[in-house]
Amino acid sequence: MQSHTITLNINEEIHIVAVKAADTLLYTIRGKLGLTGAKPGCLNGDCGACTVNVDGWPMKSCLMLTVEAVGKKVTTIEGLRETPIQQAFVENFAFQCGYCTPGFIMNCHSLIQQHPDADDQTIKEWLESNICRCTSYIEIEKAVKSVLNKK
């Protein structure tokens, strides 16, 4: 399959990468850019471990082709710097093995930006798209609410 050179805006940096039409965004950011924070968990949109932020919204990067990201602003977990939600995850023990954590944090981060006054129902609608197998979700709930309440 033929490769094409495209320009991506990832974590506020411009990257020129050669991709195939069928390459997913997850494949490209991990394999070509070494941004391995986004994790493969199912490659089927079921688990949310690969969640990144595209133009302010959470996106499962296994469900998006790399070429679709042209002209958009992509933020990965590596692009977050000392945000309140990261600190809240640490303080609330909202992770154990840590594998689902980047995806959860990207989802929470987008939620906090889009719905700073999110109620329980909204939080549930957003966060039920990610699976955490280690925690009880209560820890994650506490973490996200501690940031929402501060706002």
């Binding site: 991990r30 394999g31 070494g34 941004l35 391995t36 924070g37 986004a38 994790k39 493969p40 990965t76 977990i77 590596e78 977050l80 990261q86 600190q87 995850f89 640490v90 303080e91 023990f93 992770f95 840590g98 594998y99 954590t101 980047p102 944090i105």
Partner: peptide, 24 residues
């Protein structure tokens, strides 16, 4: 005491590496 986990910062910044994250 609820000492913060030693690998906490790595895990919330995407720097924590798992087997598949090692590429060569």
């Amino acid at each position: 005491k609820s000492v913060i986990r030693k690998e906490a910062v790595d895990k919330v910044t995407g720097r924590a590496k798992y087997t598949h994250d090692y590429q060569k």
